[in-house]
């Protein structure tokens, strides 16, 4: 399959699904969540799977993006595009700012410092009442719509989101396969090795954090305008944990796998919101099962199985001839 064709397919699936589901508000909202979590999962793959920097800061950046977009829209009266750009810029800068001081930290301590970051963001959002509305949150953002066309407004939102999602997907795919991306990948294996090859470890680490943060921020901007209400309870550590579980399910090193993982876990989780008492229990059980049974991820595991089968078949044929 050619590359343009494959990309076209990835764009066509959410657009077609949205068109098919028009009129069904619940199904469309599930689709929107699949795309939003897909964005968060791609950000995680970029930072963790590709650059090897463990992070639990997704929920923090998601929150910063959501609040940045909402405040821009509510206080400055800017349109959604303004809010989105503001979210991307602010979270990108925050990501860069977080990346710089934590250069010295590695492994699970990196995970924990990013965890502390998420927790600090949550505390700030809860207590900085004059800016964020505190526990009451912010509401009254308006959903963006596409001019000149008349679709179901939810579908119009889904189209915009799918376009952003697709842009991120293509951009990440290109980044990973570029010279720049390969340099970033080197950080995963050895700082010294990267350094010896003339790769600036500090620069690439910070930029990995900044890029991944900006993607989370963009997701946050879409989330805020979709739900039209944001409060601190939407951005807890559970979001980061869930997103990493999605990536582990799909395969931490594979963009497509992460997107599929996000879709799978979202489809499990969204119906569970109907039973709020059971939701955390079942969700946690699913996450545990995924991690314990398939720590390498579904897509890489399948790929390895196929590779092994092909190798054994080739070995059989070689022995026959």
């Amino acid at each position: 399959m050619g590359k343009p064709l494959e990309y076209a397919l990835w764009l066509a699936v959410p657009l077609a699904a949205g068109a098919f589901l028009q009129g069904d508000a619940y199904a469309l909202s599930v689709l929107v969540f699949v795309l939003i979590y897909g964005l968060l999962a791609m950000a995680t793959v970029l930072c963790m799977g590709h650059a090897g920097q463990i992070t639990l800061a997704q929920a923090g950046f998601f929150a910063i993006g959501a609040y940045a977009a909402s405040i821009t829209e509510l206080e400055l009266g800017a349109p959604f595009a303004g809010g989105l750009i503001m979210a991307l810029v602010v979270t990108g800068l925050c990501g860069y700012a977080l990346g710089y001081p934590i250069l010295r930290v590695k492994g699970h301590f990196l995970g924990l410092i990013t965890l502390a970051f998420t927790q600090v963001v949550n505390e700030v959002v809860t207590h900085w009442t004059s800016l964020t509305g505190g526990v009451n949150g912010l509401y009254g953002m308006s959903q963006p719509s596409i001019p000149f066309v008349e679709f179901d407004p939810l579908y119009e939102f889904a189209i915009l989101l799918a376009l952003f999602w697709f842009t991120v997907f293509v951009a990440c795919g290109n980044l990973i396969n570029s010279r720049y991306g390969r340099a970033m990948h080197m950080l995963k294996f050895s700082d010294w090795g990267a350094q010896a090859n003339g790769i600036s470890v500090a620069r690439y680490k910070c930029e990995a954090f900044a890029l991944s943060a900006a993607i989370c921020g963009g997701a946050g901007a879409f989330y805020a305008t979709f739900i039209q209400y944001i409060g601190p309870e939407s951005f807890t550590l559970e979001v980061s944990i869930g997103v990493i579980a999605m990536c582990i399910l799909g395969g931490m090193t594979d963009l497509r796998g992460a997107i599929l993982g996000a879709a799978a876990l979202t489809l499990v989780n969204e119906p569970l919101r109907m039973v709020p008492e059971l939701q955390p229990v079942i969700y946690a059980l699913v996450i545990l099962l995924v991690i314990v049974l398939l720590p390498q991820g579904v897509v890489p595991t399948l790929r390895r199985l196929f590779a092994e089968r092909r190798a054994s078949r080739q070995a059989v044929e070689a022995s026959r001839s």
Partner: peptide
């Protein structure tokens, strides 16, 4: 992550 998920499970 497993311990974090265990935490969610216990709370739940």
């Amino acid at each position: 992550l497993v311990t974090l998920a265990l935490g969610i499970l216990i709370r739940g």
